[in-house]
Design a protein around this nucleic acid. Structure first.
Lengths: 181, 181
DNA sequence: GATACTATACCAACTGGACGGTATAGTAAA
DNA sequence: TTTACTATACCGTCCAGTTGGTATAGTATC
């Protein structure tokens, strides 16, 4: 593996700030300092703050796709591979730091179009699942449950105990097995 | 019914701004103007912006509680009344405007303790459900699915089609009926 | 019933800091 | 000569919060 591109260095820095100091601390000045660049250098790579956040989101989507597709490829032959892979990899927080997710959420609150790349990705996955498994409401309900567990964790509003978290995801997969069979 | 208190007038104004102009437009100046008060007058009633948002959240919680308890009381005798009521009233957006929810989410991104009233409310509902129905992971999974549908709607990241939304909620309640028996 | 005082509910103007973005001049490497 | 920066200074705007004051209503006192 070669050294990361400057772009990635910047995105790493932005993520580090979000994770360690909170979503609200992602300012151009701070990101520049954290990435060891000047502000001018930072703005050379990203047209503005919005572009920076959008790039963070896009990288996140790509990475989670890689993880999911990796998992899906281990399920070859079995039915509902994409759906299963989604449910199985949704809770891996090595790919989505809560603080980073909150940073994107906060930005999306003021700029809804920012989530467009995500919406596109979702539409794509929807198509893939339909092609693989058909279009049944139960599938979307499983998806919603997975999203629910994720959002509850992100916002710290789980009704269950923290140590139950993994059990909840297992439970969901168990339920899915039953429904998909 | 008497005229609303100034506090409520202010909270109404803030919600209106969020709903009509977007979450990012809730500034003290705008809320003051919209509520027909001066900024000083506004700050007489709320110690600061955080207090204002917190009050919005608290009023939202209270209102949704009223709706839910109303529904629950129509289920007297039947088992799992609270859980059923939660699932049945979760999708009523007359009580939670998406933009208002986003405003609170955005604020929570920078000030996580802001959601504490919500966390307390959740803990309370958890206890109530456990007392009524016991502590079974399946219950929390139903809750997660309801939250998932809600968050997907708030963020506009539903995998299903918009016109399927109500059907999804019905589907969830159907599933719940099966699980709760 | 006039006077003094207090609490409540505001208003208008201002301050100060944060922050996104721009500008400029220069450097180093390929 | 283009690409990829550094360094620094600066601008404009937004916006939370402060300050010092006013109007009104009520209460207590003499």
């Amino acid at each position: 593996m070669g050294q990361p591109s400057t772009r990635d260095t910047i995105l790493d820095a932005a993520q580090r700030i979000a994770a360690e100091r909170g979503a609200g601390r992602i300012t151009l000045d701070e990101v520049a300092k954290e990435s060891g660049l000047s502000k001018g250098g930072l703005l050379y790579h990203f047209a503005g703050k919005e572009a920076l956040i959008k790039a963070m989101l896009e990288r996140l989507i790509e990475r989670s796709s890689v993880v999911r597709e990796e998992h899906a490829s281990s399920l070859v032959g079995k039915p509902h591979a994409t759906l299963r892979a989604m449910l199985a990899t949704r809770n891996r927080d090595d790919v989505l730091d809560p603080h980073v997710a909150m940073a994107i959420l906060a930005a999306a609150a003021e700029q809804p179009t920012l989530l467009d790349p995500l919406r596109q990705h979702i539409a794509h996955m929807r198509e893939q699942i339909i092609a693989e498994s058909g279009d049944h409401p139960a599938f979307w309900l499983l998806w919603a449950a997975a999203d629910g567990l994720l959002f509850q964790q992100l916002l710290g509003v789980e009704p269950y105990l923290p140590e139950q978290r993994d059990a909840m995801h297992q439970q969901l997969q168990l339920l899915a097995e039953g429904m998909l069979k």
